[in-house]
């Protein structure tokens, strides 16, 4: 029994390490000279920061970083506010047409964003929002996934709390802001973390909406950088990769619990 435990643990650890090798190489290569990379080395012969210096000087990476950060943060904040309110309405309030509105709010699931990308682009263009961060933020706001996760969570909160508060004369808004929303904080964080990483990592939509190099988000900028600038070698690109990954990895380290729960909640 004991031996089996050792063996299985060793297997698990070994497998995880092998699985992470591509990432390990990415980080190591970001400290290597072009010569080291071309030699197929793992450990840099000389640890150097040149790649990071090059990428910070040459590329518009700070612009891209800010674009990604601003659109992801504002988008996430907007989603949380708008979808929490509507989820509260369809899950905690009783009114005629409630079920219909709930089904309506889930319609986004039936319309994949890729299927409407072209007419949406034409609309954004008409609004003058091409090369504008609002062009990324606004279409992201009506998230059926957020309403779904939040309303499922709120539905499961027992009615007792609410009834007690009502007897004490609390109004609907008191109940919402003082009882249900504070109790829904775990679900709200899950929704926030999930959507932040989704907007941060999205590639297709920003590729279409951002045509000006200054307005690229990080994922789009990285690809443009690797493809266009002939003077950029492999090392700097790996350095850019590391810099682009750090924020999500930080979010992941601190919010792992919420993220993994989000995975389960988002499919059920």
């Amino acid at each position: 029994m004991r031996v089996k435990k050792y063996l299985l643990t060793a297997l698990a650890v070994l497998l995880s390490i092998v699985y992470l090798l591509p990432l390990a190489w990415m980080v190591l290569a970001s400290f290597q000279s072009q010569k080291d990379i071309l030699a197929g080395r793992w450990i840099p012969s000389v640890w150097q920061m040149d790649n990071y210096r090059t990428i910070l000087q040459r590329a518009k990476i700070s612009n891209w970083f800010l674009n990604s950060l601003i659109s992801s943060s504002i988008g996430t904040a907007g989603i949380v506010i708008i979808c929490t309110l509507s989820a509260y309405a369809v899950s905690r309030m009783d009114f005629p047409g409630r079920n219909l509105l709930y089904i309506f709010s889930l319609m986004g699931f039936m319309i994949p964003s890729q299927a409407i990308a072209i007419p949406l682009y034409l609309m954004i263009r008409k609004f003058g929002l091409v090369n504008n961060l609002l062009g990324i933020v606004l279409p992201a706001l009506p998230s059926s996934m957020a309403v779904f996760i939040l309303s499922q969570f709120m539905k499961a909160i027992p009615a007792d709390y609410e009834e007690a508060a009502r007897l004490d004369g609390a109004g609907e808004l008191d109940i919402m802001f003082k009882i249900i929303l504070p109790m829904s904080v775990p679900a709200i964080i899950t929704v926030a973390v999930l959507h932040f990483t989704w907007i941060w990592n999205d590639f297709f939509w920003p590729l279409i909406v951002m045509t000006n190099e200054k307005m690229y988000t990080l994922p789009v900028g990285l690809v443009a950088l690797a493809g266009s600038d002939v003077n950029i070698r492999y090392g700097p690109i790996m350095a850019a990769n590391v810099m682009a990954s750090l924020p999500v990895i930080v979010v992941y380290l601190f919010m792992q619990r919420y993220l993994t729960r989000g995975v389960v909640l988002s499919v059920r």
């Binding site: 992470l20 591509p22 990415m26 992941y252």
Partner: peptide, 17 residues
């Protein structure tokens, strides 16, 4: 964690690497 980590990375980082 090891197996979930790559999923948090943007597709550009993954593909360029």
């Amino acid at each position: 964690s090891a197996f979930y980590l790559p999923y948090t990375l943007t597709i550009s980082v993954v593909c360029l690497t």
